[in-house]
């Protein structure tokens, strides 16, 4: 018994070392970014590399607010991210249910079409998409950008994969009891997919929060700009305000961290909360 205890302790310590080393590896650029946002311009690329600023410069943060309407961009970005994520969760879970739990002819072909569109680089569909949005009169609106996020094939694919692993017998049982499909989706499938939904919410919120190209093409009023768009104005024609970009990025990341920390509980406790375990 004693040897097993020692063995477990050794494994535990080994795992802990791996966890910490990996964490340092993952953390390093983030820390560099945050510390870099407190550096004056001349220190950022100094050789040899210094992690800590020699002269702490706190005004980078104030400068970001002075040079762009940062708070305004924050609100715009949050609005777009929240609404596009919500809409996407609704339309994708409906479709994913159809693709995984309903039988109809052409199901696989249609699904392959969904996948196929993911394989075309945005660089060539960008202008056709711009023209479409313009013809619909949605240029320079947040709604136009939100719409573009609602129909992503990625979300359908992700949820479909998770729903496929939920046994069909659950669905059949509910049908025999007379439940319609909307109810089955709402009261059985979705509660069982909490971890997948939390994943989708996190990844898509992140996507929309960091989206740059679509807002760059579609928006024209300065006050409607998003954070990413605002921060890129620090990359100027003949030089880049790297320290301001780092300060702005650091501030822009706080909501995503909060969303992630919150959503984490669902990654782990999702199924248990659904009450099927055991």
């Amino acid at each position: 018994m004693k040897t097993k205890g020692t063995k477990n302790t050794i494994i535990f310590i080994l795992v802990l070392i791996i966890l910490v080393v990996l964490a340092l590896f993952m953390l390093f650029p983030f820390v560099w970014m945050v510390l870099g946002s407190f550096k004056p311009k001349d220190e950022l690329f100094a050789v040899p590399m210094n992690l800590l600023p020699v002269r702490w410069k706190y005004t980078n943060y104030g400068d970001v607010f002075r040079k762009i309407p940062f708070a305004n961009y924050y609100v715009n970005t949050a609005k777009i991210a929240v609404l596009s994520t919500l809409g996407q969760v609704v339309t994708c879970s409906l479709s994913a249910y159809a693709f995984s739990k309903l039988h109809f002819r052409g199901r696989d072909a249609l699904f392959l079409l969904y996948l196929g569109t993911m394989m075309i680089p945005y660089q060539v569909t960008m202008i056709p998409q711009y023209e479409l949005i313009r013809n619909m009169g949605l240029l320079d609106t947040h709604f136009g950008l939100i719409l573009l996020h609602w129909f992503s094939p990625f979300g359908v694919f992700l949820l479909r994969q998770f729903m496929l692993s939920i046994p069909d017998s659950f669905v059949e049982a509910a049908r025999i009891e007379g439940a319609n499909d909307l109810r089955i989706l709402g009261s059985i499938i979705l509660p069982l997919s909490t971890s997948a939904l939390a994943t989708l919410v996190t990844l898509k919120f992140l996507d929309s929060w960091n989206d740059y190209t679509a807002p760059m093409i579609m928006l024209s009023s300065k006050m409607k700009y998003t954070l990413q768009l605002g921060l890129r104005t620090f990359q100027q024609e003949f030089g880049v305000e790297y320290t301001l970009i780092l300060a702005g990025t650091t501030m822009s990341l706080i909501p995503i961290l909060i969303i992630y920390i919150f959503a984490q509980n669902y990654f782990i406790e999702g199924i248990a909360a659904g009450g099927v375990k055991g």
């Binding site: 990996l22 964490a23 993952m26 953390l27 650029p29 983030f30 560099w32 970014m33 870099g36 992140l206 960091n210 921060l231 990359q235 970009i245 780092l246 990025t249 822009s252 990341l253 995503i256 961290l257 992630y260």
Partner: peptide, 12 residues
């Protein structure tokens, strides 16, 4: 921490 590379901006 393992999630941080995802959210750190590509420029940084």
């Amino acid at each position: 921490i393992y999630f941080l590379p995802q959210i750190t901006s590509m420029i940084a």
